[in-house]
Design a protein around this nucleic acid. Structure first.
Lengths: 154, 154
DNA sequence: GACCTTTTGACCTTGTCTGACCTTAATGTC
DNA sequence: GACATTAAGGTCAGACAAGGTCAAAAGGTC
């Protein structure tokens, strides 16, 4: 438990816990400097510990004034959302994706227009690829949209 | 958000929001003076944030009494769909895709939630592929969503 | 020793900012 | 009116400031 990646992970999670907004901005190079490591080490930590599946959103920007922004999603493990997001899985077919959207529509979670928008993004011909990839990308898109809705909930 | 270009962008957008006519006239050198930067920095901001695809028209005039005039170009949701869909093209980068969505939001064509939904579907890591394909799929997704919105109009 | 995780370094891409030099328009002078 | 002067804005290459990627080396674990 004494490796760098764990230390950096803890550091970031402490920062997140302290922040009101559930968001921290850090500089990749600066953070690497603090921990005396290669900048790409920061990417490793982000890629292994701050995945969407773990309830984090990482956004970055390059160039002057660039940053790494981490946002924590307070996912309630009992909430229907969590189950919903899990139900998407690694890959999902078009009919199963549409079924999820239809249920959201029926339950009044999304509007008619929102449902149309989601359907439009899940179409087979839209994600014009061969089998396994098509379903994987569809799962990514759907999961990402579900999380966006969840975030918009407040 | 600590870079000059963003500050100047915000400044100009505030001016535009305050203006009745949806137009502002500024002096390039004077503005550069205000922000203590090179005049060409102003051109950089105009070229990266006030393009036609962002919904702005920039006109300038040189010589004595010269000016930079920025006009907000409002999207007409009944007429501009064709052009909008065409502007997506065969392939589109994430920033350009987001610019289109931002414009839809700005002009009240989509709601906040709808915009979030669209953004969620356009993310880099969501369409987890390498270059040209990533942009091609993003274009398909965005085009499909625009068409869905258009159809929902009736 | 096979396998997984961590760490680094070389090289890449994107975004910002400046400075030197260019073009155009208005105004003043003869 | 011709010409010079002055007052704008335009262009572009290049420096600078981030973050991204990937493969290979190093370190742990069983």
């Amino acid at each position: 438990m004494a490796n760098l990646a764990d230390l950096i992970e803890q550091h970031l999670k402490r920062l997140l816990a302290k922040s009101e907004s559930g968001t921290v901005d850090v500089g990749r190079n600066q953070l690497a400097e603090t921990f005396s490591c290669a900048p790409s080490q920061i990417n490793y930590v982000l890629a292994t510990r701050f995945l969407l599946e773990h309830g984090y959103i990482v956004e970055t920007r390059r160039g002057g004034g660039g940053y790494v922004r981490i946002t924590v999603l307070e996912l309630d493990p009992n909430a229907d959302w969590q189950r919903l997001v899990n139900s998407v899985g690694e890959a999902i077919s078009q009919p199963r994706g549409e079924a999820i959207v239809n249920r959201l529509l029926r339950d009044g979670v999304v509007s008619h227009r929102e449902a149309l928008l989601m359907m439009a993004a899940l179409g087979r011909d839209v994600l014009s690829m061969k089998q396994p990839w098509c379903d994987i990308v569809r799962a990514n898109v759907l999961r990402s949209m579900l999380i966006a809705l969840y975030r918009a909930k407040r």
